[in-house]
Design a binder for these strands. Sequence first.
DNA 1: TCTGAAATTATGTCTATACATTAATGAGCG
DNA 2: CGCTCATTAATGTATAGACATAATTTCAGA
Lengths: 240, 240
Amino acid sequence: MKQPLHERIRSDFEARILSGELLPGARLPTELELMRDYDCARMTVSKALSALVAAGLIDRRKRAGTFVARPRVHSMVLDIPDLEQEVLQRGQRYHFELFNREVRTPDPAHPDEAALAGEGELILLEGVHFADDVPLAVEARLISLSAVPDIAASAFQGASPGAWLLKHVPWTEAETRIAAVPADRNVAARLHLALGSACLFVERRTWRGDEGITLVRQHFVGSAYDLIARFGSARRPSDG
Amino acid sequence: MKQPLHERIRSDFEARILSGELLPGARLPTELELMRDYDCARMTVSKALSALVAAGLIDRRKRAGTFVARPRVHSMVLDIPDLEQEVLQRGQRYHFELFNREVRTPDPAHPDEAALAGEGELILLEGVHFADDVPLAVEARLISLSAVPDIAASAFQGASPGAWLLKHVPWTEAETRIAAVPADRNVAARLHLALGSACLFVERRTWRGDEGITLVRQHFVGSAYDLIARFGSARRPSDG
DNA sequence: TCTGAAATTATGTCTATACATTAATGAGCG
DNA sequence: CGCTCATTAATGTATAGACATAATTTCAGA
């Protein structure tokens, strides 16, 4: 076995916890005991246990010891769709059609707009995403001009503003709301749907630090689009 | 400064990467350089960088060095609703009404059922979630009896099987599909909706290791329910 | 009996060092 | 020119020990 020792210790306990042999709340041996069990230094044991803490499988308390964590998993990772990539991956052609573009100051009647841009100017982009010339989604996007000054130059005919933004202005915070709504008059017309058809509605706000970047509202053709979220115990994105 | 040094190093680089100062592919200083920069031992630097590897922010290659990781998957955390908690938190009464319960062997015509339970038996639970006696969602849930033998004893009248399962059988892998669908005859009747009303459809499969646990399909009243997903630089449990 | 201080114990951080492993580099040879 | 092989620069694993920190337990004094 060329497997590192700390990894062996880690996976030993991962297996015992996942198998149910060690139940939530059960106490693990102390580092001193594990040093003897595996005949190694304390740092090695510590590294193994730290990884299990990072994976959320155990909790450690000074003086008290190390315990199997209560199952806490109430969340999973939702991939944010890059529509263009997904459409292309399905072997279809993609294009984006802009049908409105205006620059304006936040309308006090819309608290969203003030929240996004404060006193600064906004640009509003409205367009439709197509897969093989069939409309897939309509989006209305507000972008804060102070956060993204370069945007005035971009045309967004054919390419999606979402993908452009991702490349040029990475966000650090985001919030997404997902709901099912009936198509209103405008949406139905843009997507060639019957009035009241089920649409997947996605509203996302993104920030970079404290500064609002964009607020987008997308209506997907219900029958043509799913969101997928996954959670796996694979070595996972957070150290915590 | 009571913050550990390795944590300070970690968060320094996390900030520089998230802010865009260090672009994907950019090379970080070597451990030797960082030892000098932070005036500390190599193990301390190593611990900080290991955490960033675990977080997926950097890649490390022997002899070559440490680099900002390539295209970060843009994903965010989706909270999995515990319906009972959410309804209670909104100040409403919650109850669950079971209208069907049967035990059977997987139907070969439904690949889902075989995939879930293999040769073993399944239990099918169908019921409706209520908030203040108004139907909020209807769910159909398949559970593998071999994964959850205790379930035969539970009645699930009033309490939701989802919450029961979470407490008794924590999962390790899950996949969720989210879509907008029109209410069919059955769903419309159960939720007191017009035929074709927009519903948020959530389908979730969960596993424990390789063993399938449950497959649930939920239809939410579109006008009454949202899912929320968030991403923030908020630290996970182990960080300060 | 209650209270607060001290001892105890387990984890948390850090150092300094050693050797292993991997892969980019470059020198020498055909 | 292109191949092979040794060199070497970087990370990866591990040790042994020191001191820090937190929480529980114990115990002395009011």
